[in-house]
Nucleic acid binder design. Sequence first.
DNA 1: ACTATGTAGATGCAAATGCATATACTTGTA
DNA 2: TACAAGTATATGCATTTGCATCTACATAGT
Lengths: 155, 155
Amino acid sequence: MSLDTSSTPVRQAAEAWESLFRTQVGVMRRLQRDPAFKELSMREYDVLFNLTRCPTGWIRLNELNEHLLISQPSLSRMVERMEAKGLVQRRPAQHDQRGVELSLTEEGLALQRRLGRAHVRGIYDLLSPALTEAELAELKSLTDKVLASLAASES
Amino acid sequence: MSLDTSSTPVRQAAEAWESLFRTQVGVMRRLQRDPAFKELSMREYDVLFNLTRCPTGWIRLNELNEHLLISQPSLSRMVERMEAKGLVQRRPAQHDQRGVELSLTEEGLALQRRLGRAHVRGIYDLLSPALTEAELAELKSLTDKVLASLAASES
DNA sequence: ACTATGTAGATGCAAATGCATATACTTGTA
DNA sequence: TACAAGTATATGCATTTGCATCTACATAGT
């Protein structure tokens, strides 16, 4: 009969989310200090990274957009700038004349690898003092579950 | 003697981070769909939220900045806009004439509470199908460890 | 086939952002 | 005290972002 909500599942979810979110902010702030990331914004790096995760090497702009926290027009123009820099290339989509597909150029791939190494090293330096290997695995397992659940409930 | 890195602790940390990061993006994208967040950007909401977490009610701009993924000049102007909207108030810092302290106005507090409820509800809807209560607690525990470690290594 | 409705991406334009720097104050040191 | 170096916030300005909207193509219903 209490109105107190401090131990409800709702609050528990909020607290877990808050901690996860603050962790993301805290780690991201540290990573951004790395001089390697002077050359490219984190958002641009994220585009390169997403492209490396693409089995065919090509991805539709709208699909890429779903993996980023950026509006469609902003992505459209960011990709335009990155194409001008020679980091990515576009082509009309295979079976949809409206669509555009994107892939890394050699130069884009080389840059991603270089920054990726710095990135991964930075992450290791930040996480390894905090968590054991078992805990890292546990953390990944939990967030993978959330990702799977989000994917399953895509409307 | 292998050059393969697929099972090193370095890679494990990177994979855990990637999953956490994708989770943050996925959840955030869903939360932003909520019509309640048409009124205020996520970054502005985050300022209001941080202010509610302040024991004295007041926080220095530079300290607030450390909790956000935004540059100092951007925060300076964002706060200026929020003050113009009547959501926050500024005053000169107590013992430092250079500094500025910030707090919520009544209106800002009311808005934070309203959006906070929608926010918390959205988080619950996204996380509770994915994780049990025990898993939520475990997730929070792991990310809290990372946060504590980051705080401890602040240079 | 024809029309209505939907979806992918681009573009005009105002607003927000970051970088470099300026300004005001503080602190350490001679 | 005086002065050099450091810190907190603000501001000029070019870039990036988002919203609204546009165009082009796709798809469903008749």
